[in-house]
């Protein structure tokens, strides 16, 4: 219950911060060309995973980045790549070690509807889906079985265990253009594994790109990105949008 409360509070505050950031923009931004199919692409890295890895004593760590295409400023096909791992020792001295690459492919949709009298903006409110996959090796060491009655003690190591995991993610978040072509944003992800481990199998404790192997998990990404692809060139070739620029200038002069 406490976790859900913290989660909701975090979500509301993040929404508030994003709203304030968007409102503070005094300059009117030239919107991307919604008549062109491809409006460039954004390369981004995740800052949240880097910070939390350091604060969690590197028991788990993750680095990831991605490329997001801008199709008509409505659809955003995305590829994300990363490297993650865990080096964990429990209170009972059971060790878990893994590291591996992970990939996600998916698509985001811009949910922000353009109103006729609203100021043009590159900011996005997105929702989307991802399909994630990771194939990795892991070791589980020093798993002891103590029999207090018969007075026996046995220690087992499960080395070079290999598995592949596939999961899907429901993604929601915002992206704000803080400087020209420089974006910041966050996404909240609900992750769900598409397969479960058979009982008795030495299941992985941590899955690169997914997190703790609990069937479902939540995660938070804070992305920093740069948009490639000149929007001005596109605009010059579009007479309709040139008229828009004139209107924007008039508003600025007023």
């Amino acid at each position: 219950m406490r976790r859900i409360f913290v989660y909701i509070i975090s979500l509301l505050l993040c929404l508030f911060v994003s709203a304030v950031t968007a409102q503070k923009k005094k300059q009117i931004i030239i919107p991307p060309d919604s008549t062109h199919l491809l409006n460039g692409f954004t390369v981004h890295v995740d800052a949240a995973s880097l910070v939390t890895s350091t604060l969690m004593n590197n028991s788990t760590y993750s680095m990831e980045g991605g490329i997001q295409l801008d199709l008509k400023h409505k659809i955003f096909p995305t590829i994300e790549l990363g490297f993650a791992g865990a080096n964990k020792t429990t209170n009972d001295n059971i060790g878990y070690k893994t590291s591996g690459m992970f990939e996600r492919i998916g698509v985001d949709f811009n949910l922000r509807k353009k109103k006729k009298d609203s100021k043009p903006t590159n900011n996005l409110f997105i929702a989307g889906l991802r399909l994630g996959m990771s194939s990795f090796n892991y070791n589980v060491t020093n798993v002891t079985i103590t029999d207090n009655y018969w007075g026996t003690n046995e220690s087992n190591n499960y080395l070079n265990q290999h598995t592949s995991k596939i999961w899907y993610e429901i993604v929601a978040g915002v992206q704000v253009e803080v400087f020209k072509n420089f974006f910041m944003g966050w996404t909240i992800r609900d992750k769900n594994l598409l397969s479960s481990d058979a009982a008795g199998n030495v299941a992985p404790w941590y899955i690169p790109g997914f997190g703790l192997n609990n069937g479902t998990s939540w995660s938070f990404n804070y992305t920093l990105g740069y948009h490639f692809g000149s929007q001005k060139k596109n605009l010059k070739s579009n007479k309709v949008l040139l008229n828009q620029k004139k209107i924007i200038k008039q508003i600025n002069n007023n």
Binding site: V20, G211, N214
Partner: peptide, 23 residues
């Protein structure tokens, strides 16, 4: 702006901590 970034980062950290499992 810097303040906004700091707040978002802080809450992302809190969120990740709140989602870690115990042993």
């Amino acid at each position: 702006m810097k303040k906004s970034i700091f707040i978002v980062l802080l809450f992302s950290i809190l969120l990740n901590y709140s989602c870690t499992s115990d042993e």
